[in-house]
Design a protein around this nucleic acid. Structure first.
Ligand code: MN
Ligand code: MN
Ligand code: ZN
Ligand code: ZN
Lengths: 137, 137
DNA sequence: GGTCTAAATGCAAGTTGTTCGCAATTAAAG
DNA sequence: CTTTAATTGCGAACAACTTGCATTTAGACC
């Protein structure tokens, strides 16, 4: 919620500040949009090991610094947790696959939430939680 | 929208009615719930080739007989198109991973859409369509 | 600054869900 | 009954991750 530098996001957490963590977090902060592991990998010139990127993404999720963005099949997307509230809608482009964060979670006209020129073709709504079968342990 | 037998779903479509298609469609009709390729494979005793199942699922999607159900990572789920309207919410159990179809797409209290004993922990909303970058070809 | 150690990294190999190439089989048209 | 294009089964290939392990390194302690 604070300044958003790699160091500020990691401080006070008992996590080693390695060179690759600074680079990965720097890239995440720079993009500002939902990203995948391979987006990161490419944006860093394909130099860092993918396993290192995956391990750091997992760690950052565990710390609540980033969160997973729901995406049908394909690859997993993530977003920086401090820039949006936990449950907001996303716009997914059926052509280029880019994912856009949308404002507002409360009932409101779609047009007001999406700047013009977005054409909505499908809406996906999914609730996640615990089903009756699993409630009775 | 009609009776829902393997033959009725395939008729008038210029598609060969093979033994495995009848078996696959039969199983899909029987389950009535969202299913994955491996759900089908197992429910058929692991006898049919998985590639055949995948190829038929792809064909059935193309024909609009089944449709993909959004699911975060893991495997792809599908549902029979004729039993629900195209855009309805789903409930995903965080423990067993089962996916439940929910009634209603219109604003309405969650409690009325989910029979009791479902605990909602997260809500995912995703719009899919064409973004501004892709609108200008 | 130098030493030490647990944690992190890079590399290679493994896993999982899905797709593809190809020869053998089969639905269904004639 | 023929014929043939579509479909199937099988194995190999793929893509996105994940894991094991030897090497490196951050940073705690001197
Ligand atoms: Mn977002
Ligand atoms: Mn459904
Ligand atoms: Zn686009
Ligand atoms: Zn459950």
């Amino acid at each position: 919620m604070g300044k958003c530098t790699p160091e500020s996001l990691l401080e006070g957490r008992n996590i080693k500040i390695t060179r690759q963590r600074q680079i990965v977090l720097g890239a995440i902060i720079d993009t500002g949009k939902p990203f995948s592991a391979s987006d990161l990998h490419e944006s860093l010139g394909n130099e860092m090991d993918l396993a290192t990127i995956y391990r750091n993404l997992e760690m950052l999720c565990g710390e609540g610094i980033i969160r997973q963005v729901m995406n049908e099949k394909e690859r997993q997307y993530y977003e920086l947790a401090c820039i949006h509230n936990p449950e907001h809608p996303h716009f997914y482009c059926n052509i280029c696959g880019k994912i856009y964060c949308m404002k507002q979670d409360k009932p409101m006209r779609l047009k007001k939430r999406l700047p013009g020129d977005f054409t909505v073709e499908q809406t996906v709504l999914q609730y996640r939680g615990i089903c009756p079968d699993c409630s009775k342990e």
